[in-house]
Design a protein around this nucleic acid. Structure first.
Lengths: 106, 106
DNA sequence: CAACATATATTGCCGATCAATCTATCCGCA
DNA sequence: TGCGGATAGATTGATCGGCAATATATGTTG
């Protein structure tokens, strides 16, 4: 799973959000590094819904603007936990190698 | 940067390796999760060389089999460190969200 | 009234990976 | 002796996900 998709799932852990809300939350979660583009977000949401990791819960109209809300499914949460563990393992393996390298420079 | 490419760079931190050696090391680094396919590896190596993150250091012939060695460049090391920090941040952000979620279940 | 933020949506392109296949050598086992 | 498996490198075509660009529409701010 790629970074934008991972961040979409992460953004949905603390409750349902609509598209633009996800864009804002993802920017915050990534310290401003990842600014989701509409093409990326909506394609990712469609894909995640098709995979059963996210579901479309309701539509609201706030001040004349449409808001389409999405929520993480139980399976989506499990997949996110597995992906997080994968990232942790990956970062850990690289850090171990880098730590083993640096002491040689002293 | 994607996972296979990241693992190729990580595999090269402890010294030059040839293609098949990288494949073995990446499998080990990822606890058997990532089995690099030839198409992925050689495309990644060509790309990394073109980007100056990896260099082709020498060719050996061992027992009649060709071995093409690649090494991490100084810039490659810096990029790997930055990518590792990114992964760490990403995993950390997701873990914080998941930790905030779980206590609600108690 | 212009610019900007909010909000969703579509289209075409491209980069990276995957799947499959190929060639070739060496080693162990039956 | 021959067969499979491990070693070693390479190519091709397909697919998937993200990016760039653009479009529509409303609300807010200067």
């Amino acid at each position: 799973m790629r970074e934008p998709t991972f961040l979409v799932l992460t953004a949905l852990t603390d409750g349902p959000k609509h598209g633009y809300g996800i864009i804002r939350d993802v920017a915050e979660l990534s310290d401003g590094r990842v600014k989701l583009l509409p093409g990326t977000l909506y394609a990712a949401l469609d894909r995640l819904v098709a995979q059963g990791l996210v579901e479309h819960v309701r539509d609201d109209v706030i001040d004349g603007r449409m808001r389409r809300y999405y929520s993480l499914t139980g399976n989506g949460l499990r997949v996110l936990q597995a992906e997080t563990a994968r990232l942790r393992q990956l970062a850990g393996a690289a850090e171990a190698r880098l730590r083993a390298l640096k002491p040689r420079l002293t």
